[in-house]
Design a protein around this nucleic acid. Structure first.
Lengths: 205, 205
DNA sequence: TTACTCACCTAACAATCGTTAGATAGAAAA
DNA sequence: TTTTCTATCTAACGATTGTTAGGTGAGTAA
């Protein structure tokens, strides 16, 4: 047993998902055939059905991973922060880790952002559950920031959460993490947002 | 001559583009066939070729219109503003009119935002010219705002322009102009952005 | 009337699509 | 060794794709 029985199949599954994520990102869902996914994964199209029930099953998993990878990174970062963290520190950590995850797993995250709106209804409905969970994480971040006292009262958390996630995700369309530094992007993003979001007692992070 | 010769063809062209924009927005480029576009426009697929040379020619025009409709609205609004307008007033006008155009022509604007990244290279290249022109308009808005004196020096115009356009476009994915008021969206967006963007002499619009 | 153009239709083309059934070669289990 | 299982391949299926050639009828110009 050179390779564990389970491992071989898992490796192939991962290669298929990686290939699909990259292709969906670049060409869209409808323009990517199972044959090109299979070729990119090093097999023939019929073999995909050993690992997935259908093309929709593949895209469901790609979309879910695109959200969950960001969720996990942001969640662990926020959980690791001290109880005394300020609102500014909390928001900066959330923004930084969201952006870092976006570009670290950009095939999955960009595929999600780009094709979520054009995928069959059942697929979108499946991904919506995962999205809601991530939005709930941001609601808890905003609540915790508010309790720490530095937040403007006029800001509606529900709308701000969507505004923030949408704005951050939009960076996938223009920011180049090779040419520029994600950390600096997070800094300037936080600087602009916090200046408007925080009471003007102090506006440094 | 009940209908001018030219009019008839122009009306059909417009119906085709409207149908295509709505379908591209909802299902993506590759999943929309010429047959369903034709059906939505009230004709058969072969007839599309009387008005357009190919499917790509249709999507090129849809994408260009999606940018140009916003460009024109923002441009006329900014041009109409007084010479003494403050930085805050200028930015608020730009943001408001961008958002209003986004939702007024949402099939075209949303189709552009959603499928730009998954369209054949030549199509994307064609639309890039139009996008660059709109970005240049925002550069001139930011320059004019800076000349009026209220802008933070630390903000890089080139990056901020992309950040702003991306953030505004992202509202198409979560804001419902029927349920809520676009004007209020523009107000809170401006409030948050300007608070961070402006010197803190005054932060009201 | 006759000739002509405009806007559309019909019917088909080759190519490609997602999917399936059955075969196969190597490894694991008996 | 024999059997079973795992992961893949081959080859085909009906459906659908963008596109084209040629036809058609209504309206315009002569």
């Amino acid at each position: 047993m050179l390779i564990g029985k389970k491992d071989k199949a898992d490796i192939s599954r991962a290669r298929i998902l990686d290939a699909a994520a990259g292709l969906f990102r670049q060409y869209g869902y409808g323009q990517v055939s199972l044959r090109v996914i299979a070729e990119a994964a090093g097999m023939k199209s019929g073999s995909l059905y050993y690992h997935f029930a259908s093309k929709e099953a593949i895209v469901v998993e790609v979309l879910d991973l695109g959200i969950e990878m960001v969720h996990q990174k942001v969640d662990t970062a926020i959980c690791a922060m001290s109880e005394q963290a300020s609102a500014g520190e909390l928001l900066h950590a959330g923004i930084l880790n969201h952006l870092q995850a976006l570009f670290a797993f950009s095939d999955y995250t960009s595929a999600n952002v780009r094709i979520y709106g054009q995928v069959p209804d059942e697929v979108r409905k499946a991904n919506r559950r995962v999205r809601r969970r991530y939005e709930a994480l941001w609601m808890s971040i905003l609540s915790r920031a508010e309790e720490s006292g530095g937040l403007r009262a006029s800001v509606d958390h529900d709308a701000f959460k969507l505004m923030l996630i949408g704005s951050l995700n939009a960076t996938l369309e223009w920011f180049d993490p090779v040419k520029d530094d994600v950390q600096k992007l997070a800094d300037s993003y936080t600087e602009i947002l916090l200046g408007g979001l925080l009471n003007h007692v102090e506006s440094n992070v």
